Computed example of a mutant assay.
Amino acid sequence: MRSSTSVEASIDRLAHRYLDRVVSRGGAGGVWQARLTEFVVFGLKQAWACVFGALLLAVIIAVRLWYPSGAALASNDFLTLSAVAIQVLMVVFRLETLRELRVIVLFHVVGTVMELFKTDVGSWAYEADGVLRIGAVPLFSGFMYAAVGSYMVRVFWLFDLRFDRYPRRWITALVAAGIYVNFFSHHFILDFRWVLLAAVVLVYGRCVMHFRVFRKRFRMPILLAFLLVALFIWFAENIGTWSRAWLYPNQLEGWQAVSIDKLLAWFLLMIISVVLVAWVYKPEPPEGSHGSPSAVHAGRNEA
């Protein structure tokens, strides 16, 4: 795992100082304060992992509220240039490595291809302004998928993710490929999303994700983790459509909440995201479990 940035180190250092004071004072409330500290650190690190998407969403909201309508630079072009600047700063300040940037660029390409198709068939639409675009798709749209990729690669090492009974990667790749194809093919043939959802449950159902927040490691069924992230993206999508960065057909006459049906689409998209990141960071078992480096080392010592 790569070294922490100054922000992450500061979060842990401040939490350590706080808990050391709590322990030194003693008292029955120490356990609850320790748990609350773990929760606060979890929230802070999650927010830090979302920095790409949060900054991009902040720019989208700012454009909706304050960008002048008669500006020489179209709002969509401003969003694209802002997204490029955020991405450059992420690399310059070493919040992302060049290795991670490759998979984030792949997210960008995969997302842009889907955007080109989906806008063509009328699934959603963008304002027709600006020159930094491919057809009806402004280039900033790909950065929204890249923001998901950025979160995935950052949370992987930020929480030192480990996986118990992670499925074989070639199997997950087949499921992800089926999901991606279905995003296109369901416009012409049967929609297999429920079949694909069943496949995801079958493939990942036994997998448990282990993660370190601060002092302790926790565990969670990976399917629940997928659902929570998809729910968070769905909330962000509601903000994006309210900002009129893009609109679904039922929002053209006036904004309304994004259909909850989109939550399933984001859940399935999560599988594509996880598979792409798994080719950068190979999923490893928890420390001390059978097959992990520490378990192998311990076995050799016993021999």
Rank of each mutant, 00 (worst) to 15 (best):
S82E: 05
L56T: 04
T97I: 05
L161F: 09
A278F: 11
E284K: 11
V63D: 06
P138Y: 04
F188M: 06
L196M: 01
L263T: 10
A230F: 03
E96K: 07
R154W: 02
V91E: 09
S75Q: 13
A62H: 04
Q251D: 05
V91L: 15
P283R: 07
R165H: 14
V103Q: 12
L116Y: 10
A176D: 06
P285N: 11
V109P: 14
P221K: 07
A199L: 06
F140W: 15
M144I: 13
C207D: 05
D20R: 13
L223F: 04
I11V: 06
S24H: 09
Y145D: 07
K282F: 13
D120C: 00
G30I: 10
L19S: 10
W194V: 02
R244H: 09
G291S: 11
F163P: 03
R215E: 12
L196Q: 01
E284P: 00
L190D: 10
E284L: 05
V153Q: 07
R300T: 08
A176F: 03
I189C: 07
G254S: 06
T119G: 10
V274I: 14
I11L: 02
E302M: 10
G149F: 01
V113R: 08
V110P: 14
G288W: 05
R35L: 13
A257R: 07
G299L: 11
A257F: 14
Y204M: 10
M1P: 02
G299A: 14
I86S: 04
F143D: 09
A34L: 13
T112N: 04
R212D: 08
R206S: 14
I222M: 07
R17P: 00
L44N: 02
G43A: 13
L197T: 07
V31L: 12
K282R: 15
S185A: 12
M220D: 05
R99L: 15
R13T: 12
G122C: 06
K282A: 15
L276H: 11
D129I: 06
A49P: 05
A15K: 08
E96R: 09
A265W: 02
A136M: 08
G29P: 00
F52H: 04
S10L: 14
V7S: 03
F214N: 05
W157A: 09
E287D: 14
F52C: 02
I222Y: 13
E237D: 12
R168H: 08
T172K: 01
P167G: 00
R17I: 00
F192V: 06
I233C: 12
E8Q: 05
R165K: 15
I272R: 05
N301S: 12
L95W: 12
W48V: 02
V148S: 11
Q87L: 15
W170H: 11
R99P: 07
S259I: 03
S4W: 04
G205D: 09
L264Y: 01
P283A: 05
D164H: 10
N238G: 15
I134D: 02
M209L: 15
A295I: 00
M270T: 09
R193W: 01
V23P: 00
I222F: 13
F39D: 09
